[in-house]
Amino acid sequence: MTIFGQKAPATALVGLLIILLNVLVAVAGPMVAPYGETQVVGGGWDPSSATTWFGTDQIGRDMLTRLIYGARMTIGIAFVTTILSFFIGITLGLVAAVLGKWVDVVISRLVDVVLSIPLLIWALMILNVLGQSLTSLVLTIAFLDSTRVFRLSRALGINLVALDFVEVARMRGEGLWWIIGREVLPNAAAPLMSEFGLRFCFNFLFIAALSFLGLGVPLPYADWGGMVKDNVGGISFGLPAALYPAAAIAILTVGINLVVDWFLSIDARPSGAQAEM
């Protein structure tokens, strides 16, 4: 099967299917959910049955319903975060690449400091200060993640800025935003797209991990990471309830990674290891 004029391998098709399904569920949410978000339909940790396909959670809510509502929250937050992170990261990265000199030095050094220790540790410390709310979660992760986007877009930008067509634009006296918007950005779009997939995965897992640690999405909302945490108690009795939301996280991430891997492999040239001997 071909997509965008490229032959897609089976793995990529599987990935696309997973993404499509998740997006559908997230958008359609309440319409496809069998019960209400907080409706109690049985006892705690009932096993799966004809009416509750994945059983119930720790206080008897339908697991499938919670998963569907959770999709909307979990995917939505990660998506908004990634968009914000890209907006900040690309803008700063390309400005640093095009302007160079002290602007570049200042921004790059700041980013170096942020990246010199793990983002999770920063996140823990910042969330400690800001307190737990959706806004502070999104802002914190977006800020932290934008440093990675900055690194990539700056690197791409610096390579493009060195090309003669950008030099021609400079010699014509074009302004900063023309050079960024018309000359550099369109040529950096392809690698940034792949990076978007990877960063989305990263943020998605990051937020899930924070929620699991009890520091992510705050309480009334259903989100997959938090659902794992809530249902962990069942594990020691052999009850797999906590694994369903965890598996949902894993499956979506696998799906995105499969598609991104395919994107990246389109441009990759075979290495010398493949020569005909």
Partner: peptide, 20 residues
Amino acid sequence: ILALICISMPEFFVGYLLIL
């Protein structure tokens, strides 16, 4: 493919799967 799948798993998923 195996590496890709492993990278995509959240730590707690693998952990609880092993515990279970």
